[in-house]
Design a protein around this nucleic acid. Structure first.
Lengths: 244, 244
DNA sequence: CGAACTGTTGAGCCCTCTCAACGTGAGTGG
DNA sequence: CCACTCACGTTGAGAGGGCTCAACAGTTCG
């Protein structure tokens, strides 16, 4: 088996556990059933009882919840290397919808595959538990943003976090990144109205902090933006592997 | 080994996976190092790099993040059977603080214990992954509350969720439950000011929906409260085990 | 070439915040 | 046993951040 083109998930997990040849092989086997999905067509509907999870190989995905009153809260965006719908499989009910923002490629993973992989290599179980915990840490940070940051800081923090995540898989830098999100996506993610998002973006742009325009995020003053957002990327980055 | 007095965690996990004798024994072994902690003294400080996680045996605990400006966002409250600081161990950095609200008892679990347990019984790994996913589902629901619910619905949803969780471990019912939280705790959890919490509670009480008073939550009209909160406990309750 | 989606701007309003004050009960020390 | 403090709860008044309603411009696409 060739390990030259490691999948984004493998890259991510390798930062956490030093994976052996065997473990890499098992991980690679999870990527076998490759599937494609079209932008805008839900992968998982809210309320559906789903058996399969996915590992995102390319493209952007949004996870959201629809309220009874019709309003939408975006929980997170997924980028390559992230799991899709793992929670739905484990909880045996999908409490949220999953929609590709662009055409995507993803590997299908059944619950039984996961159990078998864990049986073969317990360290892999720990590594995946780590990945799930990291996802939770992001949701927690998101939560703090909604609860205790004003609209400007919330937006700044969001754009910085996304940039950091993209940098880890080679899709961004401290200069900026390509971003297919609309202002409506930002609004539903940040708990704001689309109109207010527009005003906030204008303010950040006029203050020469960030520019969000034409599918491109440009950091005009990275340092000052970090200060405004009170951003600390510790929870995203893995300084050193925990398991030897 | 006697299984008569199953720990709260065992109860929770058993609802998800049918655990064998061996698995129960391994799970029981994780409970060996019993420790006590006093109310108000942080178990884990924010920023600390922690090696041990805990399984809460009795008492209430709060997980929170302090912002640079001094404001506090409570991420969640833990009740018996919940993990404490598992994320801190896995991410190798504590992005949040953990404080006992009352005197508590908890079993210390080292990262190595966990790895060893996974090696012996991979199904246990899946079960714990489930528990972590359930925690994440609660944080997600919390996120939706902050992003898309007004203060009244947010409070109603919070009190209902807590009631449902407590019911699962035998500490509450549809009539109500004992609750050691102050209005300041509610404020920091729900992203409101303590003053507004007070007003919201008064309104809910005057509308004969819930009464929060003297450490006691009483549901005056469970049905109407669920309607106001748009509450769906699917993500908390396990209809049937996923793994045979 | 109309329809749908996205972005932009203005005006007014309301939910929730902040500031300020006061009440109550539990400790605690003199 | 009383004064004092401290934590928690309660209420009022005014301010402000973000929402809603309304309108319009640019693009893409069928």
């Amino acid at each position: 088996m060739m390990n030259i083109a490691a999948s984004p998930l493998t890259k991510k997990l390798s930062a956490f556990v030093a994976l052996s040849e065997t473990e890499l092989a098992v991980l690679e086997r999870l990527h076998q059933r490759r599937k494609s999905f079209s932008a805008g067509r839900d992968l998982v509907h809210q309320g559906q009882s789903e058996q399969a999870a996915y590992i995102l190989a390319s493209g952007w995905v949004v996870s959201y919840k629809i309220q009874a009153d019709g309003s939408r809260q975006i929980v997170d965006f997924q980028i390559p290397g992230d799991f899709l719908g793992l929670r739905s499989v484990l909880l045996h009910t999908s409490d949220h919808g999953i929609e590709p923002l662009v055409d995507i490629e993803a590997a299908e993973v059944m619950a039984s595959d996961l159990l078998q992989a864990f049986a073969e290599t317990p360290r892999l179980a720990t590594a995946i538990l780590w990945a799930v915990s990291r996802d939770e840490a992001m949701v927690v940070e998101h939560l703090v943003g909604l609860g205790r940051r004003d609209a400007d800081a919330r937006m700044a923090h969001f754009l910085l976090e996304l940039g950091a995540r993209l940098s880890l898989v080679g899709m961004g830098s401290k200069a900026g990144y390509a971003c297919p999100l609309t202002q409506y996506h930002l609004a539903d993610a940040l708990g704001l109205s689309a109109i207010h998002v527009n005003r906030v973006l204008r303010k950040l742009r006029e203050d020469a902090l960030v520019t969000f325009r034409d599918g491109l995020v440009t950091f005009d003053d990275y340092g000052r933006l970090i200060e405004l957002a009170d951003f600390d990327p510790a929870y995203l980055d893995q300084a050193r592997p925990l398991l030897p």
